[in-house]
Every structure is written in C-alpha cells, then in structure tokens.
Design a protein around this nucleic acid. Structure first.
Lengths: 106, 106
DNA sequence: TATATGTGCAACCAATTGATTTCGCAATAG
DNA sequence: CTATTGCGAAATCAATTGGTTGCACATATA
C-alpha cells in the first residue's frame, strides 16, 4: 500500500497525465477529455499521484485543479545521480582512449 | 507483456539489483546472496531487466554474469528533461523575484 | 562416467493493479 | 428549493505481478 514515486511513474497513463499538467493545472474532467478513458479512471490515477505527493489538488469553487509538484520529480533525478557518475566516468575513459588513438605518436 | 524501463525500475528489488551490479557484473547466485530472497526470484527480475535491455547477460563458463547497460539509464534522464526545463525555469523566476525583493530601491 | 553446481523455465498461488459501474456528497444554476 | 455538475469512494472484475517449488539442462569436478 506504500506508494513511491517510481511506482507512480511506472504506468504510461500516469506519465501522460503528469506531462499534461506539467505546464498548467487541470481538473479531472479536463484531463480525462484528453485521453480515451473515463473520468473515474483518471481520478484514481490522480489519487495515487497525490498520495506520493507528485501532484497537489487545489479546490477552486466546486472544481479541483491538480498541479504537478515539480520538485518531487527531482527525487528521480537524485536517484539517477549514482548512475550518472558511472556513465560520465565511462565517457571520460572512452574520451581518453579515443584521444590516445588519435595521437599515437609520442 | 510489453516491458518498458519505467516498469522495470518500479520494483524496489530490481532497483536494488541494478544498484548492486552497477559497478561490477555479478552472477544470479551472487546477487541473491546479497538479499533475503531466493535465486529464482532474482533470476526472474533479471529476466525482466534483460527484456528491456537494462541488463546484459555474459556467459563465462557455466556462470552467467549480468552487467548493467548504463546507457539505457539515460532514457530516464531524457524523459526527465521535459520537467527539468520547468523546474529550472521556476528556479530562475524565484531567483528574479528574490533579487527584486532584495533591492527594492532603484 | 557419475556427481555436484549454476542456471533458466514452467506451473502455480496470493496479492496487487487498472478499469468500470454505481453511489453519495457538495457546489452551482435555474 | 430543485436540478445539474464536478467530484471522490466503494464494490467488483479481469489481468498482471512477485514469489515459491519443481523440474530440465549444461558445465565443471571426482
């Protein structure tokens, strides 16, 4: 029952929702209109996204606008850091190798 | 049945496996010893990781070493780009706001 | 050759997931 | 007040998931 952000973005529908509301907060109905799915299905996804704080609801009259918590996305970025170190290192090694091959003299 | 990388990293066990073999390729048995789980369970995770090309098996005698395909991780990084643009923009806006508040005289 | 070891794979099972349907509630409109 | 609209929550269902168990097979070792 514990939600984490990685599980949240695992579903393609949720990634689509995230991308959609990234620039502008939207209501569940408005979101559902963009996809071939029911309002309730979207609502369920929004519940999951809200639970892991990737999205924040904001009541405006009887409508609820859902906004992306962009800062939460940084957690993924942070997780990637451990691998980023590795691929940058490999790139540097490759770079060194290439320049060694390019100037074989000396 | 279609695997993608986001589903692959959704599972905590798989993230742990990825992190473990990031620096050094390992056999299924060796990996399983690091966790409180069976060899077969690890093998299943490796199958999923291999299917989406996040991991590559390398036969050495009767052992199979699994190595992380670090380049595949960049796909996540690439997906994050669309949001990175946004949070950098927000940061700049905040920065502008703060500097405006700091020097109200002019 | 016989035995032990490292592995993948299929069968099976409980738990979870994503979607639909139905309902109830609150805010707005008539 | 009554009807409509926007919404969340519960019930339900098929499909998927992660795990275990039991095999089969190939490579080493005795």
């Amino acid at each position: 029952m514990r939600r984490d952000i990685f599980q949240a973005i695992a579903d393609p529908s949720r990634r689509a929702i995230i991308a959609l509301i990234a620039l502008q907060a939207m209501t569940p109905n408005a979101i559902a209109e963009h996809f071939d799915t029911s309002r309730q299905a979207v609502s369920k996804h929004l519940r999951i996204l809200t639970e892991c704080e990737l999205v924040k609801p904001e009541q405006r009259g009887r409508e609820i606008y859902y906004q992306l918590e962009i800062n939460k996305m940084k957690e993924i970025d942070k997780w990637l850091d451990q691998f980023r170190k590795i691929w940058e290192k490999r790139f540097t090694q490759l770079d060194t190798l290439l320049s060694t091959l390019k100037k074989p003299k000396k």
